[in-house]
Amino acid sequence: MLKAAYEWLDKRIDITPMWRDIADHEVPEHVNPAHHFSAFIYCFGGLTFFIVVIQILSGMFLTMYYVPDIENAWKSVDYLQNEIAFGHIVRGMHHWGASVSIVMLFLHTMRVFFTGSYKNPREFNWVVGMLLFFTMLGLGFTGYLLPWDNKAYFATQVGIQIAASVPVVGDAIATFLQGGEIVGAQTLARFFALHVFFLPAALLGLMGAHFFLIRKQGISGPL
């Protein structure tokens, strides 16, 4: 039954080559932690992806209760954390996952750096990876404001002040982030949009490029 369904689909859209291409490529011994324990350093990239998936899923559930306006933002977070079944677990996953994903991303970057894997011909994939790093930092910065507690509010205020002190473009950046004279309703709405739509879109696009390139070029050889 399943086989028949698959064949019906395959006859029309020829899906076998697509997934065989992903499934069948050989993974060399030097990155396989089952053969060399020290190869666990090659797992950081995959683990970053794993945590990002956790972030996306927990974030999707958080938006079911979160209300992005200054009257209700804090109340909705308080409600989902203290009243909803498993709310504190889902918010906990998103809160701690933010830190863990930065740690994993950092470890992955260090692995690539110290094994010199960014060298010819993989320069471009390194640049894509750095853009991913900045996107993640942006997600961290914008997500920090959303619970709308004192810590969130004043950290964002300081962050925007620092951005504003950059010569020439500083004021433009601050206005763009703040959406007004003070950190307020506009800022929260903007940070929500950035955190939930713009930056994740960039993240997914960049991750697609990152994976396409690694598949195209293969993983770097042993040292």
């Binding site: 954390q81 677990i89 906990g92 809160h95 930092l137 709308w148 004043f154 205020q157 962050g159 307020g184």
Partner: peptide, 28 residues
């Protein structure tokens, strides 16, 4: 980690609070 440490949520933001010590997230 998630089950051992509840994610912190402070008091609702009060822009007039002058004594609050701002601190960014650890990676900044």
């Amino acid at each position: 980690l998630v089950m051992a440490h509840e994610p912190p949520l402070g008091e609702q933001a009060d822009p007039t609070n002058t004594s609050f010590l701002p601190v960014p997230d650890w990676y900044f």
